[in-house]
Design a protein around this nucleic acid. Sequence first.
DNA 1: TCGATAACCGTACCGGGTTCACTTTCATAC
DNA 2: GTATGAAAGTGAACCCGGTACGGTTATCGA
Lengths: 231, 231
Amino acid sequence: MMTGLRQRKKEQTRRRIAEVALRLFDERGYDAVTVNEIAEAAGVAKVTLFSYFPTKDCLVLEGVQDDTAGVVAGRRPGQPPLDALREHYRAFAARGADGVDVRHLLTQVRVISATPALMAGVYQAHMGQRYELAAALAAAFAEEAAGNGTAAAGAAVTGDEGGTGDPAGDLLARIVAGQITATLTTLQEAFFQRLASGMPLEEAGRLLADDVELAFDLLENGLKPKNGDKS
Amino acid sequence: MMTGLRQRKKEQTRRRIAEVALRLFDERGYDAVTVNEIAEAAGVAKVTLFSYFPTKDCLVLEGVQDDTAGVVAGRRPGQPPLDALREHYRAFAARGADGVDVRHLLTQVRVISATPALMAGVYQAHMGQRYELAAALAAAFAEEAAGNGTAAAGAAVTGDEGGTGDPAGDLLARIVAGQITATLTTLQEAFFQRLASGMPLEEAGRLLADDVELAFDLLENGLKPKNGDKS
DNA sequence: TCGATAACCGTACCGGGTTCACTTTCATAC
DNA sequence: GTATGAAAGTGAACCCGGTACGGTTATCGA
C-alpha cells in the first residue's frame, strides 16, 4: 500500500495535529484555542497545519458525515430507496459501533455540540449530503418510472449527475432528499446527545434502533396515518 | 412612531449601507468585495458598518426567514399544525408577493445562491427555525394528547419553551420539525431558482402553489401512499 | 442655552488563512 | 554511495473580517 517512510511520517504528523487540536479544544473550548497554539503544541508551523487541514473547523469535523447517496445508488435492483436506507441504518444501529474509538468520538461530539461555529459546519456538510441524495433519488425515481429499465440506469450512470432534466421530478426528489436528510440528522443528534450525557453506548444503540423504525415509518406513512396515533 | 431626526438618519444610513453592499456584491461577487470598500462606498467608517450589521453575511441575509413556529403557535384551536402551515403557505403562494421589491429580492437571491458562504448562513438560519418549530410542535402534540386541554396550552405559554420534558415526544417533534423545515426550504429554493432564471413572478407563484400542495401531501401521507403513484 | 447621550470616527489590534521564497528530508536512478 | 528532483516543512510578511478604545460631533430634552 505504498507505505514509504515519507507516507508514514506524513500520516503521523496529520494525526498528531488532529489529536492535539481536539484535546486542546476539549480542555479550553474551541474559540479559546488559536491555530498558532495548536501548531506550536503539535511541534509544527502554522502553514504546515493549514497544509493538512484547510480550515480550523476541519481539525474537528473530519469524517463527520455518512454517505446516504451512496446507499441509495448502491441498493439492490428494484429495491425502493427508502427501504435501502432503512436497512442500512437498522444495520448500523444493530452492530453498534464496532471498531470505533468511542472516547475520541465522544470528545468530538462534545466539542462540536458546544461550539455554534462547528455546528454550522455540520449543517453545511448535511447540505452537501442533501444535494447528493437528491441526485441519487432523482436517478432512482427515473429508473423506477422506466419500469425496471436498465436504460434509465445507464443514463444515470453516464450522466453521473442525477438531475434527469425533468424539473417536476427533480423537485420531488429534492423534497424527499431534504426530508430524509433532516430526519437522519435529527436521529444522529439524538444519538449523540444520549452518548454525551453519559448513556452507555450499548443502550444508546438500542434506543437508536427504535428511533430508526419510528423515523422511517414516519417517512413512509406521513404525519397523518389514518387516525391520530402519535408517539 | 418616535421618528425624530436622529431615528430617520439612522435608518437611512442603515439602508444606504445595505443597498451599497448588495449592489457591490452583485457586481463583483461577494468574496471580491471587502467590508472596507463597502464602508467607503457608503461614506461610513468600518466600525460604523459593523455597528449596524454584526457580520458581513448580515448585509445580505437580512429578513431571509419566515416564522413557521409562529404559524404553528398561532393556529386555530384544535387545528392540526400541518393544516395551519399548509393554509399559511397556500395563502402566501396565492397572494404572490404584494408589496415586495422584486428587483431587490432577485438580486439578493442571485448573490446568495452564487456564494457558498452565504448559503451556509441561510442553512444556519433554517436550523434555528427548525429548533423553534420543534418546540412549537412539541407543545402542539402535548396539547393534543391532553384532549383539547387548555391546561397544556397554559403550560406551554408559561414555559415559553416547548420541550415538554418527554424525550420520546420531543424526538418525534424534532423529526417532524426537521422534515417540515427541509421541505419548505426546498420549496423556497425552487421558487427562487425560477425567479432567478427569469420566470415572471406571477407564473412562479402559480407553480409554487402546486408545489405547496405536493409538498404537504407528501408530508401528510408519506412516500409510500398505497400504490406507487409518483409525480 | 446647556448638559446628556447617541451616532460616529481613527487607529490599533487580534485571529484565521494565504503567499512566497527558502531549507530540509526522503526517494530514486546511476 | 552519491547526485538529483520532488515533497514536506519553515518563517515572515501580508490580507481580511471583526473588536476595543478613546475621542469628536450632532441631536435631544429641559
